[in-house]
Design a binder for these strands. Structure first.
Lengths: 217, 217
DNA sequence: GCCCTTACGTGACAAATATCACTGACGGGC
DNA sequence: GCCCGTCAGTGATATTTGTCACGTAAGGGC
């Protein structure tokens, strides 16, 4: 893809998924950003990595994980088109490291905005600074929900919440996932997840298949 | 206190605890903000409350709690002089509610900046927008640490972390607190906390007294 | 069709934490 | 100095979750 078409593609994506940006801002972004594709399961971020740009997701989906010192992962939230990674902004603005890892759950495209531009964007474009604040705010809220779920809720409630969330994100009653994957996301073990899912099936909340869970109510 | 002296007091506090603000900004804030005092244990924020201003803490300390539907509280972090409540900013900017409660742990003074001013401050004063972003960033990081502790750590590690944190915040090896209070903060039960503290005492990490815990190492 | 990998089911057991019931112990107010 | 409310210590037991050790089943490649 040459520069012209890349810029055109970025403009197009901005219009579709970031329509709140004013035209001036979109133009600026198109000129200075690049488009990047990630395959399914590809790592977008690694713990300890420095950022040179902020990512705006325009296609696909990305799961963010918090990682501890011995490599355990804990799923915190998922981003889709129209979202930006607050972490990449935070770390970008401070040139700091993160203890976060991010992985594409499906083929994903993102617009990479160089951090060098941040200052100019923040002060020059109101729709950008609103966007940044709103991004922070909503990620913060999501993080608080994560805290809620692990602080106050038991495994079965968390599992239910997780499934409902996936259902909403995928916009589909049928979730293609293994029990092991869920267990990893919830920082639990496969056996526990399997048992709880079985109970839910018995209560008629869902139907289990190999690699799929169909939510009924 | 009349208007003159109040403005002077605010200016003084800004200079001491928010020296990064440029003089123009400080002046603006002094003109439009009010100073408010809270007694020990007074509630600064209640879940579901709307905000009309952002708070800058200049004296004392404030504990923030996440609250669940049936009134359980979970301690998330503590603010001191020089800090601002990111939540009050977030909610302020969006006129949204919060499921957070905040309580003064000692007599506390805060500067209340009306949210109506936010837009003007953000676009007009670079040191303000830096401050806001930095506030978000650091609260976000703290929240991630909270997630870490409940996701990956067991009760004894969390307790240790909690005590170390208090020690640092109070700048004192002697912490005046009841086991019940700790248990509430960690969303555990008094007996569990008592037992773990006893074990730590046996290992020579601390010395227990009525209403006090003295950290040794 | 057979093999093999991956996913899932399940019982038995272990560990951490919560809960209950009670006791003692300290300290402020009278 | 006594009383009483609050705080802390402790054993017994329940619950939840994690771990181990299997067995079984489904589906893909040959």
């Amino acid at each position: 893809m040459n520069l012209q078409t890349e810029q055109a593609a970025i403009s197009q994506f901005l219009q579709t998924h970031f329509s709140q940006f004013d035209p001036e801002l979109a133009k600026k972004l198109a000129q200075h950003s690049i488009l990047r594709e990630f395959e399914s399961d590809e790592q977008l971020m690694r713990p300890g990595q420095y950022f040179k740009s902020t990512m705006l997701i325009v296609e696909g989906g990305v799961k963010l994980y918090r990682e501890d010192h011995d490599g355990n992962e804990f799923f915190i939230y998922q981003l889709g088109p129209g979202n930006a990674c607050a972490l990449s902004m935070i770390c970008a603005t401070k040139k700091e490291q993160s203890q976060i890892s991010a992985r594409a759950v499906e083929p994903t495209r993102a617009i990479l905005v160089p951090i060098a531009l941040m200052d100019e964007l923040m002060t020059g474009y109101k729709s950008w600074y609103y966007f940044v604040l709103e991004t922070y705010r909503s990620r913060f809220e999501e993080l608080l929900l994560v805290v809620d779920s692990i602080a106050f809720r038991s495994m079965d409630e968390r599992l239910e919440f997780y499934l409902k969330n996936q259902q909403k994100l995928l916009n589909n009653d049928e979730i293609a996932i293994t029990h092991q994957q869920i267990a990893t996301d919830l920082n639990s073990s496969r056996e526990v997840v399997s048992r709880l899912l079985k109970k839910m099936e018995q209560r008629g909340m869902l139907r289990l298949g190999r690699n799929t869970i169909k939510i009924i109510k």
